[in-house]
């Protein structure tokens, strides 16, 4: 995987800010180059859905800039949206609609809507086209939204927790669909999720958001290399060294925590290190500097 300068960004967010009651999205910036999948992770209420809604003009931004396909997202709203496939965390179709009604309602908005592709996707997900939306389970509704989002052959997929409510089989299927989708290098996917094991399979980039701020945005491998889990005996670290750890925690026989590799050299050489994973990174950042007995 070789990202960088010469591939254009399919999605670019610069210094985005938005206040919503007591919550504030603060100076959010990240960029997704064409041809890659970005995982967007963070705890409940971190601001993932808010960021996505700002991209889609469901909320008005206070400050900052959003560019999709290199264009300002409001100036070219209609053109941009015709090339985007969206899945939000809850359905937004009329309950009484059948899957065919949904097609009648939205297909004309897309010049590239492909009826046979829609039917194939429904069949692939074992959804009966004549069934009403209200007769579907939560997982089936998510599958339906994924099918609608893919039918017009979008260039960018914006998925807000598309795997919530999906069983392991369906999640695996979705990952497979994304992999096939990404065989075309001009495409891109932004994918917010709690289920980080999905990302380990398909994501190229990870953006980690915490309390409305971006903590990390880089390639999956760089992120996993950057943070290590460290462990050791109780009296191994000085107070100063402890403060370098993210999510420092003491238990009966010792401590553990997360460390930025750059600070590793300040720690004793006898310390035990282990590779981290996304869950670990997310959890540790959420714990902050608190000491937990």
């Amino acid at each position: 995987m070789n990202h960088t300068a010469n591939t254009p960004n399919i999605l670019e967010v610069n210094h985005l800010s938005k206040r919503l009651g007591t919550f504030a999205l603060d100076d959010v910036s990240f960029a997704l180059p064409q041809g890659f999948i970005m995982g967007f992770i963070g705890e409940n209420g971190a601001g993932k859905t808010t960021t996505i809604k700002l991209m889609l003009n469901m909320l008005a931004k206070d400050k900052g800039e959003i560019k999709i396909f290199g264009q300002e997202h409001l100036q070219y709203e209609r053109e941009i949206k015709e090339r985007i496939g969206v899945v939000m965390d809850s359905p937004y179709y009329v309950d009484a609609w059948t899957m065919l009604d949904i097609e009648h309602a939205v297909s004309s908005f897309y010049s590239k809507w492909d009826h046979s592709r829609y039917m194939n996707l429904l069949e692939h997900f074992s959804l009966e086209p004549k069934k009403q939306l209200k007769a579907l389970s939560r997982g089936m509704k998510m599958k339906l939204m994924v099918a609608v989002a893919l039918t017009h052959d979008p260039d960018l997929l914006i998925l807000d927790e598309p795997t919530s409510g999906l069983d392991a089989v369906a999640r695996n299927e979705l990952m497979e669909i994304l992999r096939i989708f990404m065989t075309d290098e001009r495409k891109g996917v932004l994918f917010s999720t709690h289920i980080t094991s999905d990302l380990e399979k398909v994501a190229d980039y990870i953006t980690l958001i915490h309390k409305g701020r971006i903590l990390e945005t880089q390639t999956k491998d760089e992120l996993l290399e950057k943070y290590l889990v460290v462990k050791g005996g109780l009296n191994l670290l000085t107070t100063e060294q402890r403060q370098m750890l993210i999510g420092y925690r003491e238990h009966s026989v010792g401590f553990d925590g997360l460390i930025d590799c750059a600070s590793l050299r300040h720690l004793p050489t006898s310390i035990v290190t282990e590779p981290s994973n996304f869950d670990e990174i997310m959890i540790r950042f959420n714990m902050g500097g608190e000491i937990d007995e």
């Binding site: 209609r78 949206k81 908005f109």
Partner: peptide
């Protein structure tokens, strides 16, 4: 009323429509 109950505003803004449309 139907559009409110079923969150159709979200649908409209995923389609190639501006708010003015």
């Amino acid at each position: 009323s139907i559009s409110e109950k079923n969150k159709l505003d979200t649908l409209y803004l995923t389609l190639s429509l501006s708010r003015q449309d």
